[in-house]
Design a protein around this nucleic acid. Structure first.
Lengths: 197, 197
DNA sequence: ACCTGAACACCGTTCAAGT
DNA sequence: ACCTGAACACCGTTCAAGT
């Protein structure tokens, strides 16, 4: 069922329609409603399926930072691999695969010696950072022609007295997403480490 | 135009339809297409309108951390005030109000002595954290009946041998969103400060 | 320069009916 | 237990036509 879903999603979110999905499965569109209550259920399923792709790194108790970094990298990579994931994020993530990864993250932090409230807040900060980062990156990259970038740069340059700092430092020019992401993780991990009891 | 928009959005995203919007404006649905090319344009406009609500704090050069914290708090508050904003985040944010806030954030960091690449990465980390945090919170809160929370807790407790850490530490039980968010900001700011040249 | 109506090609979902 | 067809109440968007 869900397996047939990803196939479909490899051609965009907006095209994910009950009718089209049914066609892909070689059945009538209304048949799906026997297996599923509503289209939202389908979206929940496919979202959790995405998280199944995020592999859990080996736990290395001597290097909790490395373990967490590996987890976050995989998480981000999975989301970037499926740009439509951004559109599905506005829903509670309660599927078994999501929960398994959340459990893992908390476990690593607990093993590293963290306790609530810092353990909770650390997981919260890391998860939300990954989500936000993947979301904005896919937003910039998925917009059809991908000339969004050039347009944005022009727009910004034309208004350079309105946005002096952004222009002076070449805000838009850089698109070193990976490096920026990695530095962000470092900031958060540094801050978390400093809060360790 | 956009002014009439927010009125409408106060009744949910899914109900934001060209036909309904036109009705609200006392005109035919197709009339809108003279003012706007596509529904996406409307969404872009309303998203930027949201950022207009985020007020820029007074710049206090002696307290860059306080200034940034104030900006992020306002940003987050605006998004939480309009839960539909989560659904609109999958698009590049290029409206004048968004850019003004981005400029502000970069300016504060520059004034504090940061230079690229850390200035860029710091802004990136902070922005993505806010976006992710607001997104997940609205996801949990907007789901209709709001008993999502109770259901989630039950579900988690029933599977307590599968998710021992989440249960042991009361992952779901807490919902102190504000405190968690604030701690996250502290982590990032600590990490950023440590990277200051 | 602005607004309208009719029309096209879609949607998600329900429901009685079939096997 | 599973699948189907017809039907309902919607969508975004186009386009010729009006003022």
């Amino acid at each position: 069922m869900k397996t047939a879903l990803e196939l479909l999603d490899e051609e965009g979110v907006e095209r994910l329609t009950m009718r089209r999905l049914a066609e892909r499965l070689g059945t009538g569109s209304t048949t799906l409603y026997w297996h599923v209550d509503t289209k939202n259920d389908v979206l929940d399923l496919v979202l959790d399926q995405l998280f199944a792709e995020v592999e859990l790194p080996r736990k290395d108790p001597s290097d909790w930072r490395g373990t967490i970094t590996a987890l976050l990298d995989g998480w981000r990579a999975a989301m970037l691999r499926h740009p439509w994931s951004a559109a599905l994020l506005g829903r509670p993530m309660l599927g078994p695969n999501v929960l398994a990864r959340t459990e893992f993250l908390h476990a690593v932090l607990a093993d590293a010696g963290f306790t609530p409230p810092h353990m909770t807040s650390a997981a919260y900060a890391l998860a939300n950072y990954v989500i936000g980062a993947a979301l904005t990156q896919t937003a910039w990259q998925s917009r059809d022609g991908s000339d969004t970038y050039a347009t944005a740069n022009q727009h910004l340059h034309r208004q350079r007295d309105r946005y002096p700092v952004l222009n002076a430092r070449g805000y838009m020019v850089q698109d070193d997403w990976d490096a920026n992401f990695r530095r962000g993780v470092t900031y958060i991990l540094d801050g978390i480490a400093a809060a360790k009891p």
